[in-house]
Structure formats: structure tokens, C-alpha cells
Design a protein around this nucleic acid. Structure first.
Length: 269
DNA sequence: CACTAATCCTGGACGC
DNA sequence: TGCGTCCAGGATTAGT
């Protein structure tokens, strides 16, 4: 599923393809996503020129002459640059057409969204987002400050987009294992040193995955857009009952906040 | 205010 | 083979 690295890779790729191009038409086949696609979207977008493509958390932001397109890929969404000759796939819900190319939104589980807003500040979804893990203001110190007084466990804390954005279940598991912190530890009990380690590992994991993103992106053409290449780099996620790559003891699985969590009893305290 | 559980949806894995 | 059941997952919303 698209996590922050996949979204970032998608943003870079589509920006290159559609920047400064004019939208000729828009076709909505299935408006029922996480939020319904507004019925006047084609009218709103026609003849608009793409000014910029950027990212905030896992939201893809497309600046137009008037207003913004806000796209989220949800669990299973992907954006492809394609053309009219390519056959429509089963879950291709929306086409944004340019002179020679089409930006095609595909999302089997329909957890994503395609919204239009006059300005970003008035959008509720963007209003209460936490810190960007790859931004300059995220580091051990800021993580330490944020976690003070928070008794929720550290895994849930870093996965909550009001605290920190873009860290999904897989990246949370991997970075906690790498920094030797048990996912069950109350956030407020993480030391300065541990916050330092964790912040570094979150950044590392995301950056590595972005570096692998080019390869992942090619896999987006496949039906499900699932992990593809990056899945091979996983050390702990989904490895229940297998040996910890660091110490060899058995990896445990627990459910935290309805999410599977994998950790090593020996390495993570 | 802080935290928990339910929710949206489909495809894939699994048991019978 | 085919049916039913369950699970995965991000982020919001309703509920405690």
C-alpha cells in the first residue's frame, strides 16, 4: 500500500509529467471513494493549468490556476500516467486528461479521495496534521518534547497523524525494531537518547524506501501497487515466529490499537 | 481532554 | 471447486 515513500515517489513522477500542462477534460467513472468526488469536478478542472505538484503527509497536492486538487491514495490507490490507448482497468475511477496523456486514478478498495478546494488552509483534512518526519524540524529533540506527558504507547504515538505524519504500520514496526524500543512502551517513558535513535531510524527507513521508490513505482503498473521491491528490505514486519535478524530469538506478534505489531523481546525494551 | 473502538472497501488467504 | 469467513490497512468519527 502506498506509504509516504510511495506517495513522495508518485509526486515526483507525476510532477515531471503534468507540470504546466492544461487539463482538457475529466472523466469520473466511480465517484464513491472515501469521500464522494464532487459532481462538478470535470467542470471545475477543465482548461486549468497545473502549477505545481507537492505533498503534505500522504496527501498529494496539485495547484491549479484556481484552487487545489487534494488526492489521497488510501490503502490501495495509485496514480498512473497513461494514454487513451491503454485499456481501462477494473478500478480506474477517474481520468484527468491532458493533450497527450492521462493521469489515471486506480483504487480497488476505494479508501482514497479526490477533492477540490479553493485554498488549502480551509481544508479540514490538512488542518490538524502533525510534523513531517523528513522536515528539518523533526529530530530527537522535537520527538522528545512531543512525547512528554503522553501515556499512549510509542507505536500508536508515531502512527497518529496528529503527532507525526506518514508513518504507517510497516514503518513504525521497522523503525522501532531498529532503535531497540518496544512498541508497547508509553511514549512519555522514552528517554532523550531513545527519541534520538527513533527519530533517526524513522528518517532512515523512509529515505531508504524513497530511494527504492523508482523501482516500486514501476510496480504501480501492476494491479495492486503493493510493496513490490521494498518488501524485501523488511526485517521485522510480518515475521512472526521467525528469528530476529539481530539476536536470533523468536519474533513476537501482538495487536496494538487494532494493528499487528512485530517485535523482538530481547532486542526491544 | 484523552483514549478506544468502529468504520469505510475489496481482494487474498484460509478452512471446510 | 466453491463457498463462507476473516483479515489487512489510513485516518476519521463516534463513543466511553
Amino acid at each position: 500500500m502506498p506509504e509516504l515513500p510511495e506517495v513522495e515517489t508518485t509526486v515526483r513522477y507525476i510532477k515531471e509529467k503534468i507540470a504546466y500542462k492544461r487539463i482538457t477534460s475529466v472523466l469520473v467513472r466511480q465517484p464513491s471513494l472515501r469521500y464522494k468526488i464532487r459532481s462538478n469536478l470535470p467542470k471545475l478542472l477543465k482548461n486549468q493549468i497545473i502549477q505545481d505538484v507537492s505533498r503534505r503527509a500522504k496527501y498529494i497536492l496539485i495547484s491549479l490556476n484556481e484552487g487545489y486538487l487534494i488526492i489521497h491514495l488510501g490503502m490501495s490507490g495509485s496514480l498512473q500516467i497513461t494514454n487513451a490507448k491503454e485499456p481501462i482497468q477494473k478500478h480506474s475511477h477517474c481520468d484527468i486528461m491532458f493533450d497527450n496523456i492521462i493521469l489515471r486514478y486506480n483504487d480497488p478498495r476505494r479508501f482514497g479521495c479526490i477533492l477540490w478546494e479553493t485554498d488549502l488552509a480551509s481544508n479540514k483534512l490538512l488542518a490538524n496534521l502533525g510534523i513531517e518526519p523528513l522536515g528539518d524540524d523533526f529530530n530527537g529533540q522535537s520527538l522528545y518534547k512531543l512525547t512528554r506527558g503522553r501515556k499512549v504507547c510509542i507505536k500508536q504515538f508515531i502512527m497518529n497523524p496528529h503527532n507525526l505524519v506518514g508513518v504507517g504500520n510497516i514503518y513504525a514496526n521497522e523503525s522501532l525494531w531498529k532503535s531497540g524500543i518496544t512498541p508497547l512502551k508509553p511514549a512519555k517513558e522514552c528517554s532523550e537518547k531513545q527519541c534520538e535513535l527513533l527519530a533517526d531510524e524513522i528518517k532512515n527507513t523512509l529515505l531508504k524506501s524513497i530511494a527504492a521508490g523508482g523501482t516500486t513505482l514501476k510496480d504501480f503498473k501492476g494491479a495492486d501497487g503493493k510493496l513490490g521491491y521494498f518488501v524485501r528490505q523488511l526485517q521485522i514486519y510480518g515475521k512472526e515466529d521467525q528469528a530476529c535478524p539481530k539476536c536470533g530469538s523468536e519474533i513476537k506478534r501482538v495487536v496494538i490499537g487494532q494493528r499487528s505489531s512485530f517485535y523482538c523481546l530481547k532486542c526491544q525494551a
